[in-house]
Amino acid sequence: MAQLIGGLATSHIPAIGKALAKGLQQEPYWKPFFDGFAPVHQWLGEVKPDVLVIFYNDHGLNFFLDKMPTFAVGAAAEYHNADEGWGIPQLPSTAGELGLSWHLINQLIADEFDIVTCQEMLVDHACTLPLKLFWPGHEVAPVQIVPININTVQFPLPTAKRVYKLGQAVGRAIQSWDSDKKVMVLASGGLSHQLEGERAGHINSQFDKQFLQSMVSNPEWVTQFSDLEIVEKAGTQGVELLMWLAMRAALTTAGSGVRQVHSNYYLPISNTATGLLALETLA
């Protein structure tokens, strides 16, 4: 059976794509953000995951309000990036892991998750940038992926409780996959930020730090809140922390617990408080 060896989480921001394209990693504005990844690079070089299950939220590239899914699971041989309309350079395509995609789909539907299955799926910066951040030396990250999209565009969003259950079901499914591959779960999103309205620019670092702490030692903490309560605390786009929650919930089904490999919290990048986390599954 496949091993679920750990989890990764990072913020995603279109501006990161521009900074990468222009090579601004050592500029004073960007350096503290990019430097945060170095310890994780070293760890990834040691543990070498084969496959990543990526929880991310589409920003209006692949999904529109005519057919807006709550949870969508990729089942494509190749995931293509595309023009998102705001001038980020397009990133190369990433190979899918079709065996794991269909195993996840079969297990999730048997577990009463009403997912959408996507045999074609354009992936936006939320799916592509983390691969660049975690494997900066590679034109294409040396992994295969299964993207899982969670709706953050239109309310009602799935509740934090439901997302936690999804993450657990994904964790169980990974470990019942008949494969000798090493799998990691990755979360792309958050932390606190709000792009629109008179409250644009809202950041709540106290909440973020509580949330980051909970990700290590009390993963269910944020499930006490409704989605609107999360918006109130963390901002309209702060709900992207649901991705982190799904990732962390998956790890609760593996091994005896987690060890924090590294974490970083830095703000502001663009209008966002950025978070970074790497967790290793303990035997």
Binding site: A75, A77, L98, S101, W102, I105, N106, T117, Q119
Partner: peptide
């Protein structure tokens, strides 16, 4: 099923 869906896309 999935196998057919891939083959016949």
């Amino acid at each position: 099923d999935g196998a057919e869906a891939m083959k016949g896309y």
